[in-house]
Amino acid sequence: MSGTLASSAPGPDASAQTGVAIRVVGLVKRFGAIEAVRGIDLEVRPGEVFGFVGPNGAGKSTTIRCLLDLLRPTSGSVEVLGRRPRRDGIDVRRRIGYVPGELRLPERMTSRQLVTSVGRLRGGLDEAFVDSIAARLQLDLDRPTRDLSSGNRRKVALLLAFAPRPELLILDEPTSGLDPLMQHQFLAMVAEARDAGATVFLSSHVLGEVQRAADRVAVLRAGRIVAQGTVDELRGRARQRVEVWFAEDVEDLKRLAIPGLEDAVLDGKRLAATLSGPIDPVVAVLAQHRLASLVVEEPNLEDAFLDLYGRQP
């Protein structure tokens, strides 16, 4: 273990100085002929909840496993809490709580024995805190891990991740298998951890969850980040459905000249279209006409996501 004094690498406080909890630059990871991650750049700021969104097989887990030094990047660099996982893995992992995506718990022990074992590796866990998390998740710690349902195993993994009160939570598909009530409980736990100053890196293909929990989002597709920004920005990029009922017949759509409207269909007094830009210019033009009704559907992250996902790389 390195308690490096003279080192060219940033020290433990570097993340505070540079304002970055996770920095990934040009990350590429190949498995033989398969290129799972094809050049990812990513910055997660301390104290934020960062959503890492993408379909299965997009490279989310591969990226995450590089952060923990379970995988070694083919090229590019990874920095977690100001340190390099490859060199300072012990120190980095001491400050991380992790829920694996493909979750397989050690067998032939109860959850409590597993928690005790992990506690010994971490130099002790706060037992009262462990019990309070277990109670919140309605988890019976005295059952063998082998007999647990996938949802209950996920709860054990969540418990192990949250129990050390880590600076950084890296959660890979943390709610898969959880019922809606527990998903709600999970979101509350994430919010509390963030309020306590933790950074949360949340990978998911459940968009509603990310939309509710995350401050910023990166959308991953086929090993590349196709969009990155705040939830609102991403939502702003999504196409909105616009439906306008004019008070009188409009003869010619072209004469309306509304910027940003696509796939417009004019049918008598009704205009249906999708809008991919800002709504302001549209309203400006529509304001020159008498309208009976105007409906603009609020885009959600799912639409934004499908938009990006549907687009060819």
């Binding site: 273990m1 923990l68 379970l70 893995g89 012990i90 120190d91 992992r93 001491r94 991380i96 992790y98 694996p100 493909e102 979750l103 397989r104 718990l105 050690p106 067998e107 597993l114 992990v118 590796l121 971490r122 993994a157 192990l160």
Partner: peptide
């Protein structure tokens, strides 16, 4: 066998060295 089944990951994500 433990690694192949993915059961080492819980330990390897703790502050211990490989």
């Amino acid at each position: 066998a433990e690694e192949d089944a993915g059961r080492l990951e819980t330990y390897l994500s703790q502050p211990i060295s490989r």
